[in-house]
C-alpha cells in the first residue's frame, strides 16, 4: 500500500462491507434490550438507561424451555465432536499408515460423503431411526451428525497424519510400543492442531442445523436450540421484544465463542497460512 489514495479506497471498501456484514446482527442484538416503543420509534439507537427493557428475555427464559434446549445442543454437539474426532482419527490413521488391498477403494468410499449431502437420504434415515426406536432422542442426532462429519474429518486428518515423520512411528515400534500405543501416545498428540480445526468444522453446522432436529427430534423437549428458537419465533411472531430476545439468545453465545476462537478457526480454514 504505497499510495495513500489507494490505501484509503481499499479501507473504504473493506470498511463498508464490514458494516454491511455486521449491521443486521448489531441491530437485532441492540434492539432486543429495548422497550417496545423504542424498538419501533428509534431502532438505530443503542440501548440506553431510558429505553432499556429486558422484558423480551424474561419471556424467553420464562415461557419456554430455552435453557434445556441449550443443554440439548451442547450434548449433541460435544457428542458429535467426540465421536467424529476419535473414530475419524482412527480411520484416518489406518488408511494412511497401513497398506491393504482395498485401501484406496475404502478411502474413496469414505469420501463420497464430502460431496454428497447426507440430507438426501432423509427419508430412509427417518425410517431407520424409527425402526431403532430412537425418534426424539439426542443419540439419533449424534449418530447422524457423526456420519455427516466423518468424511471431511477423515480427509483432513489423513493429510496431517501423512505429514508425521515416518521415523517417529518407527522409533515407537523399536521401543516396543503396540500399534494402539503408537496411535494414542504418538499420533493423537501430534495431530492436536488438526483436531481443533476439525472440531470447529464439525461444530458449526451441527449447532446451527435445523433440518435433522426438525425431522428426528421435533418435540418432547428434545429440541436443539436452533429448532427451539425457530418454534418459539413461530409462537410469538407478533411479540417483538420476545422475538428479538430469542434471536439474540441464539446469536450471542456463538458470537462470544467466535470472538474467542476466531484465530484458531481462521487458521484452520487457511491451513496455517495466516499472515
Amino acid at each position: 500500500m504505497r499510495k495513500p489514495a489507494s490505501a484509503i479506497a481499499v479501507h473504504a471498501i473493506l470498511g463498508l462491507y464490514t458494516v454491511l456484514a455486521l449491521f443486521p446482527i448489531v441491530l437485532v442484538v441492540m434492539n432486543s434490550f429495548k422497550a417496545k416503543r423504542a424498538i419501533f420509534n428509534t431502532p438505530l439507537q443503542p440501548p440506553m438507561p431510558w429505553n432499556f427493557d429486558p422484558i423480551g428475555y424474561a419471556k424467553v427464559f420464562g415461557d419456554s424451555a430455552i435453557t434445556s434446549y441449550y443443554l440439548n445442543s451442547l450434548v449433541v454437539t460435544t457428542g458429535t465432536i467426540f465421536m467424529t474426532l476419535l473414530f475419524g482419527a482412527m480411520a484416518a490413521w489406518a488408511l494412511t499408515e497401513y497398506k491393504f488391498r482395498w485401501n484406496t477403494l475404502l478411502a474413496l468410499y469414505l469420501s463420497i460423503g464430502i460431496m454428497v449431502p447426507i440430507r438426501l437420504g432423509s427419508v430412509a434415515i427417518i425410517q431407520l431411526v424409527s425402526d431403532l426406536n430412537m425418534i426424539n432422542t439426542l443419540s439419533a442426532l449424534v449418530l447422524v451428525y457423526t456420519a455427516q462429519s466423518l468424511p471431511l474429518s477423515i480427509f483432513i486428518l489423513s493429510e496431517f497424519i501423512a505429514q508425521i515423520p515416518k521415523d517417529l512411528r518407527e522409533a515407537g515400534r523399536c521401543d516396543g510400543l503396540t500399534e494402539f500405543h503408537i496411535f494414542f501416545y504418538i499420533v493423537l498428540p501430534l495431530i492436536r492442531p488438526a483436531m481443533a480445526t476439525v472440531a470447529v468444522f464439525t461444530m458449526i453446522p451441527v449447532w446451527n442445523d435445523l433440518w435433522f432436529p426438525l425431522l428426528l427430534a421435533p418435540t418432547n423437549g428434545k429440541q436443539t436450540i436452533t429448532l427451539g428458537v425457530q418454534q418459539f419465533l413461530g409462537q410469538y411472531i407478533t411479540d417483538w421484544n420476545a422475538v428479538l430476545a430469542a434471536l439474540s439468545t441464539a446469536i450471542i453465545p456463538v458470537l462470544i465463542l467466535y470472538v474467542i476462537f476466531s484465530r484458531q478457526l481462521i487458521r484452520g480454514l487457511t491451513s496455517g497460512a495466516v499472515k
Binding site: M83, M90, G121, L128, L143, A147
Partner: peptide, 24 residues
Amino acid sequence: LLAVFLAPAVIIYSTFSIYPLLAT
C-alpha cells in the same frame, strides 16, 4: 487391528449415510 481402527467410522458412516442414500 485394521478392523478395530476402521470399524467404528465405517459402520456409522455406512449405516447413517450411505445406506439411507441407497435406500432412498
